[in-house]
């Protein structure tokens, strides 16, 4: 009877220990992870103007930013005297499928209050709205933001480029896809003034 009592106690103690150690280990790993994340350098590598960057699904090269009075590449100046910010860039789809999520490749950071959200993307080849990019066919694209009426135009534009990684099998459906979008580079572009009226 004493032997069995002792065995029970030993089992109880060992199982409690296992649970405790496991819990501590999990805690250590998660706090280590968050520490690592916090320690990550806040300075992103700088992206030079015109230099191509592989950002996972996209390859992009930022060219120039300037103020304009045109809301579209081939249109006349806006009748209400509105101003626009136009950003010129090259984008190539590096994935294996036609894609239209190009608007997520970069963000304006820090955000500029004068810029109205949801800029339009224009395919310069057609001077028409860009609706999708085919794999392996780079295109010159113009992004146009409308400036809030009466707002002072910003002097420079800082863009953070987001990268994604390809997973041949995701954890849920075992389907291929692009995941873990995170900032990988930053570029600061000077904003040129409105071009002289023709």
């Amino acid at each position: 009877m004493t032997v069995s009592w002792l065995a029970n106690l030993r089992q109880a103690v060992s199982s409690k220990l296992t649970i405790g150690i496991g819990g501590l280990l999990a805690l250590a790993i998660t706090s280590g992870q968050s520490l690592l994340e916090a320690l990550e350098p806040p300075v992103l590598p700088a992206l030079a103007t015109g230099a191509p960057l592989d950002a996972g699904r996209w390859r992009i090269a930022l060219h120039e930013a300037r103020l304009t009075t045109r809301s579209r590449p081939d249109g006349p100046p806006a009748p209400d005297g509105a101003q626009f910010l136009a950003l010129e860039l090259d984008i190539a789809n590096r994935s294996s499928e036609t894609d239209n999520t190009f608007a997520r490749t970069f963000t304006v950071d820090p955000p500029i209050d004068a810029l109205q959200p949801n800029p339009t993307f224009w395919l310069m080849r057609d001077k028409a709205m860009l609706s999708a990019l085919q794999p392996g066919l780079p295109e010159r694209v113009r992004v146009i933001w409308r400036l809030a009426p009466g707002a002072t135009a910003p002097e420079r534009l800082r863009l953070v480029v987001n990268g994604e990684t390809f997973k041949p099998r995701d954890n849920l459906f075992a389907a291929p896809g692009w995941f873990n979008r995170k900032p990988i580079a930053a570029a600061t572009l000077p904003i040129a003034a409105v071009e002289a009226r023709p």
């Binding site: 294996s96 499928e97 036609t98 395919l123 028409a128 609706s131 999708a132 085919q134 794999p135 392996g136």
Partner: peptide, 10 residues
């Protein structure tokens, strides 16, 4: 090569 091209929206 396995790339999928959706019919052009242009």
């Amino acid at each position: 090569q396995g790339a999928r091209f959706v019919a052009s929206p242009r």
